[in-house]
Design a protein around this nucleic acid. Structure first.
Lengths: 205, 205
DNA sequence: CATCAAAACATAGCGACGCTATGTAATGTG
DNA sequence: CACATTACATAGCGTCGCTATGTTTTGATG
């Protein structure tokens, strides 16, 4: 008994906001709607305000991250896969540094918290496979090791993408992950090879 | 042949900004000078604008961090000291989460870049001592290992202080640092004890 | 010590910000 | 078809950072 929202408008604003963010143009209420034909009120009908837009943008960031991680193919070497997931995580953060920063800006009131969990879940399952393959000890808690891998990935992404470390510092990912996975029980030399293979061409940077 | 700046005004504004940040009050040009007796122009005289104020605030953050790290006493166990420095780093970030976020917000155009280097230097020297004590292999590059320790500390601080991980996640620091230092050559069991001792009462959180 | 240029300082106002109040047009429902 | 309800457009409010303008203070100079 009323008018319905047009989903196209919502995604239009979201895409445009993401694009402006990548182009390093300031995303304001007025600049966002400028040239789109819609008025400033659209932001309030679809997002409830600018805060809601940023929240939706964080969500979009996690969705893109999940999509990026989904492209990482599962191989016979779960340790390689773990490193590959880390490399994909970093590549995504470095290709969209502004969006990545927004994702971790503040307030994790995501509409769909599952989107954030999904990314961590990929890591958890890889750790689980490494355990069943005998690469990691039985005592290893998959969620804990996954969180620790995430900590390394996020630390590196944060310091390189928007921080003081140069792109070259991405190479630290290999020894860091190797150290972590070795401490989980993997044989050092083999672990190093797996991580290097998974890290792939993120090394030359 | 002109009037001189009063350093007291500068530090007054800086302290007030840091306090407002800790109190989670919005730091704006007008709210900053409100009640101080000085006018909005003071921000331009001493900082050249709000951007300059944020820059000076980042500097202040690094200065406070350096002061905090300076309180960590050097012991006979360099690995313990490394963990203690990491714990101090995290404690500082968690006590001033907003200031910490500002520090890594964007643009590392610090007036005195040495302030940021000083914090890393403490780590480098600790790694060096661990090498001469035979805890770490000769091949270990102090700056690299220090940077990797920093990556872990920053990742943990960022994810806990303003991110999705609960305070309890700080306990991940122990296995992460232990794994890293073990990979540098330290004997695992001894390394773990040293790290736990250095991490101190950051464990209960 | 008087002078004066230069810099600090106070005030007012500009453009842009996010947001809201108000009026209008469109549309799904009975 | 009629109407209630919602999307949508416009205008305006308070606040933001910043700057233009005028005043006051002050330190070097003759």
């Amino acid at each position: 008994m009323a008018r319905t929202k047009d989903p196209a408008v919502r995604s239009l604003l979201l895409d445009r906001a993401a694009h402006m963010l990548s182009a390093r143009e300031p995303v304001t209420l007025r600049t966002l709607v400028a040239g789109t034909g819609v008025s400033t009120m659209a932001v309030y009908t679809y997002f409830g305000g600018m805060d809601g837009l940023w929240q939706a943008l964080r969500q979009e960031g996690f969705t893109r991250l999940a999509a990026r991680l989904a492209t990482v193919k599962t191989s016979a070497d779960p340790v390689r896969d773990l490193a590959a997931l880390g490399a994909a995580y970093l590549a995504n953060a470095l290709e969209n540094p502004d969006l990545y920063r927004v994702m971790f800006d503040a307030g994790f009131d995501l509409e769909d918290a599952g989107a954030a969990d999904a990314t961590l879940d990929r890591l958890v399952r890889a750790v689980d496979r490494a355990k069943t393959d005998g690469r990691f000890r039985d005592g290893v808690e998959p969620l804990e090791l996954a969180t620790q891998s995430w900590t390394i990935g996020h630390g590196l992404a944060s310091l390189v993408a928007t921080g003081p470390l140069p792109h070259q510092a991405l190479t630290h990912g290999v020894p860091l992950l190797t150290a972590l996975f070795t401490s989980a029980g993997d044989e050092p030399a083999r672990c190093r090879r797996s991580v290097e293979r998974g890290w792939g061409r993120l090394l030359p940077a």
